[in-house]
């Protein structure tokens, strides 16, 4: 056997790959589930906080800023570990899946709140005044005039941040979630062969590469020029 053959046999072993393909595919499903949950709840919560913040209620805003700062400062893995290994001491035992989901959703909430807020505040005061002078209420102005312009500005930074945080689903491995990396790791230790890991790596590329390329396009397209 040549070195090349041995390499292929180790890292791309057909038999092992075939055997563990279902596990990896199931991991892909879990990763997608997690990703969708994180993106939906994280962005919704971030937007909600940004809208709340625009009401300019002092103590509430301090609280929002603190929460946002907190989840921007803490490494996501620390939050996940704290939830999964820490909360059970307080008689709350979230599963690894729930811990990963909530932790990353909080992180996305924090980052997206900051981006949404920057977008809202960057809209010129004249837009508010014009709308209010025609009788639109605060909420109507925010929803119909300010937010549509702000959202457009936030698309590039938001997509990049969302991708970066969604990739964090791999951290679920640490708390025993059988997402792609988790499934691949346990398959590797069961088979004493790194082929499942290579499959896992390929799966991540298949999932995320199109998103990254799409984000690059969006960035070009929404570069804001008037």
């Amino acid at each position: 056997m040549t070195t090349w053959d041995r390499f292929l046999d180790t890292f791309f072993n057909g038999k092992v790959m075939l055997k563990y393909l279902p596990d990896i595919l199931w991991g892909v499903v879990v990763t997608i589930e997690l990703a969708i949950l994180i993106v939906l709840s994280g962005l919704a919560a971030g937007l909600a906080l940004a809208l709340l913040r625009s009401l300019a209620i002092r103590p509430l805003n301090w609280l929002i800023i603190f929460i946002v700062d907190l989840f921007r400062s803490l490494p996501p893995l620390v939050i996940i570990v704290l939830m999964y290994f820490g909360l059970p001491y307080a008689e709350v035992s979230p599963s690894g899946f729930v811990s990963t989901w909530l932790s990353l959703a909080f992180v996305l909430m924090a980052f997206s709140e900051e981006i949404f807020w920057a977008g809202i505040t960057s809209i010129h005061k004249g837009q508010w005044e014009a709308a209010r002078s025609t009788g639109l209420s605060f909420g109507e102005t925010l929803m119909n005039v300010v937010l549509p312009q702000a959202l457009r500005l936030t698309i590039p930074p938001l997509t990049n941040r969302t991708i970066a945080i969604t990739k964090g689903t791999a951290l679920g491995t640490v708390v025993a979630v059988s997402e792609i990396l988790g499934a691949a790791s346990s398959a590797m230790s069961n088979s004493y062969n790194p082929s499942p890991l290579m499959m896992g790596a390929a799966a991540y590329l298949v999932l995320f590469l199109p998103v990254v390329v799409l984000a690059r396009r969006l960035e070009r397209r929404f570069a804001w020029k008037r």
């Binding site: 991708i163 990739k167 791999a170 491995t173 990396l181 790596a201 991540y204 999932l207 998103v211």
Partner: peptide, 18 residues
């Protein structure tokens, strides 16, 4: 783009365990 799509933990495990 390759490394932007790749979760850092996966890269790390690949190097460490692969």
């Amino acid at each position: 783009d390759f490394f932007r799509a790749f979760p850092p933990l996966v890269l790390l495990i690949l190097l460490f365990a692969g």
